[in-house]
Design a binder for these strands. Structure first.
Lengths: 179, 179
DNA sequence: CCGGTCGGTTCAGTGATCGAACCTACGGTG
DNA sequence: CACCGTAGGTTCGATCACTGAACCGACCGG
């Protein structure tokens, strides 16, 4: 639970939402999942989150239907966490948060989101600046901005340096190739 | 700090934003401030938040320029916390969160947001269903939905039962009249 | 057999939150 | 003046969550 029994008394959809995604780290896990991160270790190195907390968040998000745990190979058994439709529906929240952080706190353009169909930039409210359509999350391409560190330490950040369509799985490649 | 030193390592506007508004209770305080709550005691009874935590959150939000502490009477000295432009800019985040909570978790239409100019409903992405304009937060009127409790216990919730334009101060009235 | 990877769990220490109690400054009443 | 009530806090012990490190089991390759 994000805020315990106290939130339950609140008659408010915002409080309901925060009960589920308001805990520390949770929205960053969802952000990474939408960026295409799917594997336990990739979340771990990219977020720098304690293992116990990551396990707890992945379990909660799976129980809430925001992620789906999926066996992608049998020997050795390996699971991946794939964002569901319910999870992808959090994209507008994350986009709004990122826009607020960029405009009011940070000031840097670390990443740019573009409409895959026409290349137009996705505006703060989710519409394409070029063609005006409301861009669904699956049609968003994330492009690294000019102020993003060009040589990050972890392989996940390196993989995210390439332009990438949201929701599609991230290819981090074998560890021995990343060095 | 919302998530401590760990977030600092993240090159991401979302992480930047969550450092500030990602702590427990913080977004609910901002929500109430946008709803027009301004006084310490009103936050207290409406949120059911521990006093020490409320004091801490109000201080942090003031330091970050999201709220502004303002002396509104001298004897006895009384301060109010008014949401700033930076704070009001979080409205799209809260609207998106509320929409997600309603669509994917709760299912109830507890409150409806309408465009003050034309009465059209504000859609998930912030545009007016009737006239199509992107509705600024100051032009949003909050109307209680049919499923909202019609006789809440605390005076702030009762004051919020009346249709109310966002950002305008909430009139809770004297305590002895609320009974 | 040995080392490495992946996906965890367990555990002690620390920090945050909670709820209650307390405090200050003032105003009103008798 | 004594006393009560309100507004806006602070302080404090108990509890809960997070942190970081260690550990573990299943598997693979050499």
């Amino acid at each position: 639970m994000a805020l315990g029994k106290d939130y339950v008394t609140q008659e408010c959809s915002i409080a309901r939402a925060l009960e589920i995604v308001g805990e520390r780290w949770t929205l960053l896990v969802v952000r990474d999942a939408i960026y295409g991160v799917r594997r336990y270790n990739d979340f771990l190195v990219h977020l720098g989150i304690p293992r116990a907390v990551l396990s707890s968040r992945l379990r909660t998000l799976t129980e809430e239907g925001i992620l789906e745990k999926r066996r992608y190979q049998e020997t050795p058994p390996r699971d991946e966490y794939v964002v569901t439709e319910r999870g992808a529906a959090l994209w507008p929240v994350l986009r709004a948060l990122g826009h607020w952080g960029r405009e009011h706190i940070d000031g840097h353009r670390l990443r740019v989101f573009r409409h895959a169909d026409c290349g137009g930039e996705v505006e703060p409210y989710g519409t394409c600046a070029a063609c005006g359509t409301l861009v669904p999350v699956a049609d968003v391409v994330m492009v690294p901005g000019p102020e993003l560190d060009s040589a990050p330490a972890d392989p996940v950040s390196r993989a995210l340096l390439r332009p990438k369509r949201l929701l599609e799985p991230l290819e981090t490649g074998p560890a021995h190739l990343a060095d």
